[in-house]
Nucleic acid binder design. Sequence first.
DNA 1: TTGAAAGCGCTAACAA
DNA 2: TTGTTAGCGCTTTCAA
Lengths: 346, 346
Amino acid sequence: MKRVTMNDVAVRAGVSISTVSHVINQTRIVEEPTKQKVLESIQALKYRPSIIAKSLASQHTSSAGLLISDVGNPFYDEVISGVEDVALANGYSIFLCNTGYDLNRGMKYIHSLVDRSVDGIIFMSSNMNFDMVNEVHANSIQSVVMDWGGTDVSKIASTITIDFNTGFQEAVEHLVELGHKRIAFAGGPSRLWTVRIRKQAFQDAIADCPTPPEAIFLPEEKISKEGGRVGIEGGYKAFKALARLKPRPTAVITTNDQLALGIMWAARDAGYKLPEDLSIIGLDDIDLASRVTPTLTTIALPRYEIGKLAMNSLLNLIRSPAQLNNNQIVTASLIIRKSTSRVLGK
Amino acid sequence: MKRVTMNDVAVRAGVSISTVSHVINQTRIVEEPTKQKVLESIQALKYRPSIIAKSLASQHTSSAGLLISDVGNPFYDEVISGVEDVALANGYSIFLCNTGYDLNRGMKYIHSLVDRSVDGIIFMSSNMNFDMVNEVHANSIQSVVMDWGGTDVSKIASTITIDFNTGFQEAVEHLVELGHKRIAFAGGPSRLWTVRIRKQAFQDAIADCPTPPEAIFLPEEKISKEGGRVGIEGGYKAFKALARLKPRPTAVITTNDQLALGIMWAARDAGYKLPEDLSIIGLDDIDLASRVTPTLTTIALPRYEIGKLAMNSLLNLIRSPAQLNNNQIVTASLIIRKSTSRVLGK
DNA sequence: TTGAAAGCGCTAACAA
DNA sequence: TTGTTAGCGCTTTCAA
């Protein structure tokens, strides 16, 4: 039981191999009767083209790599789905590369992808560096990078950046409207670009208020663990810090939903009534956010859209490499749920 | 800037192309001086072999497909990591295929993987069918399937099955020791094999007790949504059903952690003190389980190990296809945390 | 111990 | 409109 090749189809249809190729790829006009014979042979022989052979001959593989730092991070779920959906729709297959926040591992993956001659790579790992993008570029492979600080890659890759300003502005306005005068901010260490950009957006939003509320910054280092990641545990710690403040903030805005949930749970454990005693705003809109009680008000990232956008950008780049330097911006915006409420009058 | 090929290396080293191939693959003895020359050329030219060309010539691709139903399901996080870790360590790359609980989509992926000549496929999607496995087998591609009911594929694939008996036995024993006499079971619809197997394990565990506690089955259909999936919302509904029972069960065992968390949160919303008023046991040991308060006692699935096991089995199969019919069993076992406690004496 | 050469299954000039 | 054929970059048999 050998593999059925294009040649088998050609022989059975009584045409040349190149005709077969052309009817399959619709790459030149073939007379209807001839075409039908070919199609019939393909059916009869259950012929399936070898993508490998095709790749070797055509010099592109219809495959792409997706570099992320952690499949376990709820941020990525929908991003992956978005990427996959447009990939599948375009005949592309995705190599998933999970760096696990490890630069060496990331570089290994890059090499593997280059060796496999993928047509493009999407960088969504916060733990990436310029060398990686450059290595990819040096091998004339296209790439799209989620703009997570560090070096400027806009000369050699398309980028996607998230506009947090809108979201934070809406969040602060929302709280101010509810009467909050002291708003805390909880995030990881500012040395991380991902944190800095959010913090800046928060500060700008505060400053933009007609009568700015007081902004209080919870101690960063206590909240985060090694690597700078913050999670639910970070929320517990953030709450402790928050509860200790003398005039207590009446609201808190966080840099991610897990952190917000941690604060929420810690607050409840401490006997707070939510949201009356403390308004909480998250960021990301992970799945859980709408499933806990009270449901979490959060600055939502259109994650599925980001995934689709990234893959579409990559496809554009692959199809017309000239079209570089398109920096796409996606906007984060507030979703109001039940974890925020009017501050209690005294 | 053309690609550096094996031929370039051969020319520079003054040897034949086949010698280069052999030193790279260590597939025949090459005199030390010759070998050094080749190695030096490789370095100097920064030569990297084309996996595509290699695949075409050698008829295997060092790539594999991983079919799962939903990246968003926390069950898969570590499974994926496990698969990836051993894949990476063995020079394999993984095509991630997210069926989204959709059979058609699954079949599309299968075809794509077959066309790409992957060396093997791991089926971890509950939404798979015999046709898929058979299609893969018909193309002489190896596969490992997570034994999620349906048809028997043991003749054409290696399988992994989870032993739930141990876990449920430990769970029931644990509750009995704590004095529980009425234990509820909350799960999705029994028509799903995944649910049935767990339910059976629960019933067996109850029956095995010296003095069996009473087993109460919460209404399945109310708990699950379309497709039979149960999540946090299901937990809320399960709790309502549970709270309505006349002599209230003092403990509940669920078929997954999300369900357990839903019950936990609903119970707290209803003013229960946990775990005193209700002991709750989950299943899976998802990340959240150890991060909520009270931390969740749960029947843990060694998910990372399952991933590693699956990929290792696949590699074995690829290396020696004869070695089929190895059905591996992994055991689920209880992790005791804080969501279970002694039943209050009256 | 090494080299020559015939593929692997397809694409894409170039001819006809 | 169709066919011939030279690769794509590598593996592997067969000879030397």
